[in-house]
Simulated scan of single mutants.
Amino acid sequence: MNVAGANPKINIIFRSCDLVNAVHNAPRPFNLDKKTLIKLCFKSLHNALQGFNYHIVVLGDNLSPEMKAFFLNFDIEFVEGVFGNDNSIRETIKIAERFNDDEWVYFCEDDYLHTKDAMQKIVTLISEKETIQPSSIKIKQLLRKRKIKLFSIPRFFTKPNIVVFPTDYPDRYEQEYSNRDFIFHTTNSHWRQVYDTTFTFLMQVKDVKRKRRTLWKSANKANDRYLSNNLYGKSFFFNKLLCLSPMPSVATHMHIETMSPLQDWEGIVNELKAEI
């Protein structure tokens, strides 16, 4: 679906497989089976996209007839095959490279539940991204009750573009993992810098093409650690991107151990059950 005059264009590549309940056998919340979970997650994303300029590609990896029938009820592009996890990631990269450089692509796994305002906050962030800039490292010294700046170290030569990771993971509030990160705000939300993601994230198409080698290599054994280490900057952003995650979360990974805080996910699930 395209809404005339809306910007930016968001291309969603929804990667789905209903044969495996969870890659690491992590328990699902609210006693959801995998098919119901996929339906709820897709419907939550579809609802959040209404009113925006979007195109959805569903990449079905050996999907059951029930799931195929579900997806084909929507206005989507359907790509079907038997890929396996690694090759399905590579296939999403190929699909993303078809889109125009100034458009955005949302690589979305099938077990992320979204809030109603998820895309509103993401689109606002993208629209206001030029105001988001990591500051220089400033070295100061206190002299006669005044702080004198001795020198500053730039964190980048070219202002880094952003990657959006829509999930606020709970372990980022644990003291042993806490870091001093950049925190920004847009007109409707707060965002903070993060250094690691899963394979669910949103980035501009020109960056997908520029970072193709990293993305492609990360697909080997679905290595999101390699992806994060080579794609996102920490203190410096020389040839790296700035990854931002919302506070509170606008999506959650539907594993019991990693549910994002400060959102009523069970309430969202119960509302969506009436729609599928």
Score class of each variant (00 low, 15 high):
3 V>G: 01
3 V>I: 14
7 N>G: 10
9 K>L: 10
11 N>H: 07
13 I>F: 06
14 F>A: 04
15 R>H: 02
16 S>Y: 00
17 C>S: 14
17 C>D: 12
18 D>L: 02
20 V>H: 10
20 V>D: 11
21 N>A: 15
22 A>T: 14
27 P>D: 10
31 N>D: 13
32 L>F: 02
36 T>L: 08
38 I>K: 04
39 K>F: 06
40 L>H: 05
41 C>P: 07
42 F>P: 00
44 S>A: 02
45 L>C: 07
48 A>C: 03
49 L>P: 02
50 Q>S: 11
50 Q>L: 12
53 N>Y: 04
60 G>E: 07
62 N>Y: 13
62 N>Q: 14
63 L>F: 08
63 L>G: 07
64 S>K: 00
66 E>F: 08
66 E>A: 15
73 N>V: 11
74 F>V: 09
75 D>W: 06
77 E>A: 12
78 F>V: 01
78 F>N: 01
82 V>K: 15
83 F>G: 04
87 N>L: 12
89 I>M: 14
91 E>C: 05
92 T>N: 06
97 E>R: 15
98 R>V: 06
100 N>R: 13
101 D>F: 05
105 V>C: 05
106 Y>P: 00
106 Y>R: 00
108 C>S: 13
110 D>L: 04
111 D>L: 05
113 L>H: 03
116 K>T: 09
117 D>L: 03
118 A>W: 01
120 Q>A: 14
121 K>A: 04
122 I>N: 01
123 V>P: 02
127 S>N: 15
132 I>R: 02
133 Q>N: 15
135 S>I: 08
136 S>G: 06
138 K>V: 11
140 K>V: 08
150 L>Q: 08
150 L>P: 09
151 F>I: 11
154 P>Y: 00
155 R>V: 02
156 F>A: 01
160 P>I: 04
164 V>N: 08
167 T>H: 13
169 Y>E: 02
172 R>A: 08
174 E>L: 14
175 Q>E: 13
176 E>C: 12
177 Y>D: 11
183 I>G: 08
185 H>V: 07
186 T>P: 03
187 T>H: 11
189 S>R: 05
190 H>E: 14
194 V>F: 01
196 D>A: 13
197 T>Y: 07
209 K>W: 04
214 T>W: 05
215 L>A: 10
219 A>T: 11
225 R>I: 15
227 L>D: 07
233 G>A: 03
238 F>H: 11
238 F>S: 06
238 F>M: 08
240 K>Q: 12
241 L>E: 09
241 L>Y: 10
245 S>H: 03
248 P>A: 12
248 P>C: 13
249 S>C: 08
251 A>K: 06
257 E>A: 13
257 E>P: 05
265 W>F: 02
266 E>V: 09
267 G>C: 05
268 I>V: 07
270 N>V: 04
271 E>P: 05
272 L>F: 10
273 K>C: 04
275 E>N: 10
276 I>C: 10
276 I>H: 09
